[in-house]
Simulated scan of single mutants.
Amino acid sequence: MLYQMAVQNPESEIDFVDRTFKRVRGRAASVIREDFCGTAYSSCAWVRRRKTNRAIGVDLHLPTLRWGERHNLSTLTEEQRSRVTLLHRDVMKVGGEGRGVDAVLAMNFSWFYMTERRALVAYFKSVRESLVDDGVLFMDIYGGYEATKEQVEKRRERGFKYVWDQAKYDPISGMQTAHIHFEFKRGPAMKRAFTYIWRLYSLPEVRDALMDADFKRVTVYWEGDDGKGGGNGVFRPATRGESCASFVSYVVAEK
C-alpha cells in the first residue's frame, strides 16, 4: 500500500494511454495488457474508465497478484471485476489469453530487469506479436545526469517519508542497484522494502531495440517544465530533450 501511495499514479498514467492511443490510432483502445502488473493497480483504473474496457494483468510473482486481488480488485464492482483477467505467468509466455490486445503497458521501469539487449529485443518482439494490427506499446523510462549518481533522496508523503536510494551504479554494464525505504515519525523505518537490480537503459538504446523488433514508429514523449526545475505532468512528442538532472518520459511504439 505504501508503494502505491508514494510511487504509482494510475489515473494519470491511464489518461496518457487513453489520450495518446486515440490520437495516434484514431479510435479508443478497449483491451490492454499490463505487463509486470504487480498489484494490477493500472488494470483496475482501466476497467473503471469505460464499460467496454477490459484488462489483462501479467506477473510472475503470485503473492503480489494475490495482494492485488485482496486490496485493488476488491474495490471494483462485480461487473468491473469480470473485465479483469490476471495471469500468473512470465511476460514472454502469456499464451493465447494475453494476445489480441490494443495496447501493452510496461510501466514503473519494470522492463529494466531485462538486462541483456537481446532479451529486451525478444520481449519487444513478443509484445508486437501480441498486439492487434494497429496496437501500441507504452513504456516509461527515467534518466538524466543524476540517474547514475549514488545518492539518497527523500520525499514526504502523508504519514511517512518515501526514500529512494540509488545505492550502486556500474558505468560499464549499466547495472544499477536501488532500494526503496519508508520512514515513519513513530516506529522503526522499513529498510529495503523494495530492491531493484536492473540495467539503466538510455532513450537511444531502447528506441533502437524497438526498431530492431520491427515496430514501425517509436516516439518519445518528453515532460514539460513547471518553471521551478521540475516537471509539469504534460508529456508531448519530442525529438530533442533537455540535459537535465533527472527526467521521466514515456516511450510509445506503434506496430
Rank of each mutant, 00 (worst) to 15 (best):
M1S: 15
Y3G: 05
Q4D: 14
N9L: 03
N9K: 13
P10T: 03
E11T: 12
E13K: 06
R23C: 05
S30L: 05
I32S: 00
T39Y: 04
Y41K: 11
S43Y: 03
C44L: 05
C44R: 02
V47N: 09
R48K: 15
R49D: 12
R50F: 12
R50T: 11
K51V: 13
T52E: 15
N53Y: 03
A55I: 09
I56L: 05
D59P: 06
L60P: 01
G68W: 02
E69L: 05
E69Q: 10
Q80H: 11
R81V: 10
V84W: 06
L86G: 09
M92K: 13
G95S: 10
G98A: 10
V101M: 08
D102L: 06
A106Y: 01
M107H: 07
M107C: 02
S110E: 07
S110P: 08
F112I: 01
Y113G: 14
Y113T: 15
L120H: 05
Y123Q: 08
R128E: 08
S130A: 14
G135V: 02
V136Y: 03
F138M: 04
D140S: 08
G144N: 07
E146W: 10
E150K: 11
Q151Y: 08
Q151D: 14
E153V: 15
R155Q: 13
R155A: 13
E157C: 14
E157L: 08
F160M: 11
D165L: 04
Q166N: 15
A167R: 10
K168S: 15
S173R: 10
G174P: 10
G174S: 12
G174T: 12
M175A: 07
E183T: 08
F184P: 00
R186H: 11
P188L: 12
F194W: 10
W198G: 08
L200D: 04
L210T: 01
K216T: 03
K216Y: 07
K216A: 13
W222P: 00
E223M: 12
G224I: 03
D226F: 03
G227E: 07
K228N: 14
G231Y: 06
V234R: 13
R236D: 05
P237G: 11
A238Q: 06
G241C: 00
S243I: 13
A245F: 00
V252H: 02
A253D: 00
